[in-house]
């Protein structure tokens, strides 16, 4: 696969850039469950090297999303206060590289595992300030009308209901059995809806520790926008605050700043005053959405469609943690 892809890429990129490239090295990056991601080093005849990132759709992926979604989301934040890679190209068909893909420039920096404590030490404060401020900027950003139009689905239902319906459908289609804790959580969400936020924002959909690049004390890029959509800005905040991303230090979300400090920073940057009851709803929603993703991963693994160990890991560890989060939230409501 890799040799064939290299040869296809060489020919495709030479045509795209109108330059004769002769050497390419594709190195697959471990961890992405929804796309096959490759680090590409490509050289022309004068030995000039370019560093690129190629994201290919998979036959079977954890979350079925279109390349166009991610491309449009990145487009919305080019040259903004939200650092994102520079886009080069996108294709929704498989005629060029055998699968739909997106190509962008490689950014400096590394991504950490969201499950490793103190991974940003000694720069937790600097990175934390940027992490929560950037999320506030995403919530605050006015979306270009063309991009807004592309993302609009024309549903008359409130955003919370569209999102909840979507993930509950995944749970009920992919579950291996009935999980009473999760079902109780779903019923609670439908019975106690949040007040719809007046602000419609671009929601990243997976804004969390591990989905950004950093170099020492600086965040260099926000990645993995494949679940982006229009919606309530509290959705991203609830997801980013989820205790799953700081399981061994729950009061310090994403192993960065203390929870209250993070919330205040987000409020200041987004210029949105949070209704604490609504935030609680979105935090429970985050755990239910997480369960949908982990259940879907378990189903992919069990059916043999995709036996990448990350699918088994997702079903076991994050699945357990989010179930416990649901239990904690529901119990605190009795």
């Amino acid at each position: 696969m890799s040799e064939e892809l290299s040869s296809l890429f060489l020919s495709y990129y030479s045509d795209l850039s109108n330059n004769e490239f002769s050497q390419v090295n594709l190195e697959r990056i471990f961890g992405g469950a929804s796309r096959e991601t490759y680090r590409v080093k490509i050289k022309d005849s004068s030995d000039n090297e370019e560093s690129l990132i190629l994201r290919l759709s998979q036959d079977s992926s954890l979350i079925e999303t279109e390349q166009k979604t991610e491309y449009l989301a990145y487009s919305a934040f080019q040259k903004s206060r939200v650092p994102v890679p520079i886009l080069i190209d996108m294709s929704e068909d498989d005629s060029q590289l055998g699968a739909p893909f997106m190509l962008m420039e490689e950014l400096e920096g590394e991504a950490a595992s969201p499950f490793t404590p103190n991974v940003y030490s000694p720069y937790e404060e600097d990175i934390g300030n940027q992490f929560w401020s950037i999320l506030g900027q995403i919530a605050k950003k006015e979306i270009d009308s063309n991009i807004f139009e592309d993302f609009s689905k024309g549903s008359k239902k409130p955003f919370w209901e569209c999102e909840l319906d979507k993930w509950v459908k995944v749970i009920h289609e992919d579950s291996i059995g009935v999980e009473p804790i999760l079902e109780s959580g779903i019923r609670h969400l439908y019975r106690n809806p949040p007040i719809e936020n007046k602000r419609v924002s671009m929601v990243h959909g997976d804004y969390r520790s591990g989905n950004f690049l950093y170099s020492k004390n600086k965040i260099t890029g926000i990645l993995d926008w494949e679940m982006a959509h229009l919606g309530d800005p509290l959705e991203d905040l609830g997801w980013a605050l989820s205790p799953i991303w700081s399981w061994q230090d729950k009061e310090r979300p994403a192993y960065l700043l203390m929870r209250e400090e993070a919330i205040k920073l987000w409020e200041k940057t987004s210029e949105i005053k949070i209704d604490r009851n609504d935030l609680k709803w979105w935090e429970l929603f985050a755990a239910v959405k997480g369960m949908a993703i982990w259940i879907s991963a378990g189903n992919e693994f069990k059916s043999g469609k995709n036996i990448d160990p990350i699918n088994l890991f997702s079903a076991w560890i994050p699945g357990d943690i989010h179930l416990e989060v649901i239990l904690d939230i529901l119990e605190s409501n009795i």
Binding site: Q248, I317, D320
Partner: peptide, 22 residues
């Protein structure tokens, strides 16, 4: 029932092994 849920989850979960994995 939440006490039952807690007991069921406690027995099944493998997430406490995350430290071991690391």
């Amino acid at each position: 029932v939440f006490s039952l849920f807690r007991s069921m989850h406690q027995r099944r979960k493998v997430s406490e092994l995350i430290g071991l994995l690391q």
